[in-house]
Amino acid sequence: MGSNNNKGKKWLKVTGIILLVLLIAGGAYGYTVYNSFRNAVETMHEPVERKTEKREEPVELVEKEPFSVLMLGEDSRRGEKGRTDTIIVLTVNPNTNSVKMLSIPRDTRTEIIGKGFDDKINHAHAFGGVEMAMDTVENFLDIPIDYYMKVNMAGFRDIVDAVGGVTVTNSLDFTYENVHFPVGQLTLNGEDALKYSRMRYDDPNGDFGRNTRQRQIIEQVIKEGASLSSLTNFSDIFQAIGTNVKTNLTFDQMMDIQKNYKTAGSNIQQMEIKGQGTKINRIYYLLVPEDERLRVQNELKAQLELTNTTASK
């Protein structure tokens, strides 16, 4: 899916997920760490002006209510401002101590809310910024989108390197961008982890194989980021996050998450949404059948402890 210029953008999710892990697993590591984190949050705070129709009242983190986060990834270095080729929805439930993570393929065809026509879901941000992206994903999944995190690709390598690299078990021997990845256990730095996650065309499972490798890296980054051994690098981690992440979460809300949802981050469950690739007017789209969309919607609603009363558009 997409052009070679878009390769690897799904890795933007790593920075956002590390941020979430630091919130729910980081705890109070001391005054210096606390201040560094506060400064990073102040740098990245960017509110949005919208009100979801999927909730009668905003989610109350102090009441330990389940909530959702939309992760958007863009790569401003390539001059492609606007399109978010990484679209991840995290739903966090403290009662089941779980996080469900859904990757929405960037070529998914759906209604762009506020425009009134169907297009690739990753175009929503280009048309109307974070607000339109949140509205469009909310409509597609029929769940409230409570918060967002937008991540720039420039932070990816820094995050992986800041946690000391990652170790993965590779099941497919391949070479990508002059780096050989043999079968077996591999220890990767930020640059090689990005390349490991990018390869798609030589994988017999295509995007699904690439998604598996991405999930491997994510899980290991989470493991390393939440470990005590990473504390010596907390300054580098916070600096990379503060520079490359924007979110409407406030510092106080993040502290509420750390206090009330700390055990949920240890149980991250991956979700996939499937569809059929096709071309319409010579443009590639992923068409998601309605029954598949409803299946995903119902699973997310259950995770958020919502009733299935809202109607999909």
Rank of each mutant, 00 (worst) to 15 (best):
V151G: 15
I273K: 00
A154Q: 14
E272V: 06
L249N: 00
P144N: 09
V41L: 06
F127K: 09
I88F: 07
L304V: 12
T247Y: 11
E57P: 08
K120A: 11
A264Q: 00
T187I: 10
E57S: 15
E111A: 08
I18G: 04
I237L: 12
T169W: 05
M101S: 12
S76K: 14
F127W: 09
A302M: 02
S3I: 03
R77E: 11
L23M: 15
Y147H: 10
I237Q: 11
N281T: 04
T84V: 06
E80R: 12
S266P: 03
T167F: 05
V14Q: 06
V69H: 00
K301H: 03
I113M: 11
D107Q: 03
N35K: 13
L231S: 08
A226R: 14
P204M: 05
T232R: 15
Q269E: 13
R295I: 01
S312Q: 15
E305T: 09
E292C: 00
Q216T: 07
I87H: 05
V151S: 08
I237A: 03
D236S: 14
M254F: 06
V160I: 11
V41C: 04
D142N: 15
K54H: 05
N308V: 07
N93E: 08
L23F: 15
G242Y: 00
Y29C: 06
V179P: 07
F234G: 07
T15D: 03
V245H: 00
T307F: 07
V89H: 00
Q303P: 01
V160T: 04
G82C: 13
I237Y: 13
A133N: 06
P47G: 00
Y285P: 12
K9D: 11
M199L: 00
V130Y: 08
G265V: 04
P94K: 13
H45W: 02
R50P: 04
G73E: 06
L19R: 06
D192N: 15
G275Y: 01
V137K: 07
Y31F: 15
L141S: 10
E305A: 07
D173G: 14
Q253C: 08
T108Q: 01
D252A: 14
L186F: 11
I217K: 10
E42R: 10
M71W: 02
T175G: 12
D173E: 14
T175E: 13
E74H: 11
T110H: 11
N6D: 05
I280D: 09
G275P: 01
V130A: 09
N248Q: 02
S197K: 00
V69P: 02
T15S: 09
Y284T: 11
N189G: 13
S76T: 12
M44Q: 03
D135W: 01
A133M: 09
D135T: 03
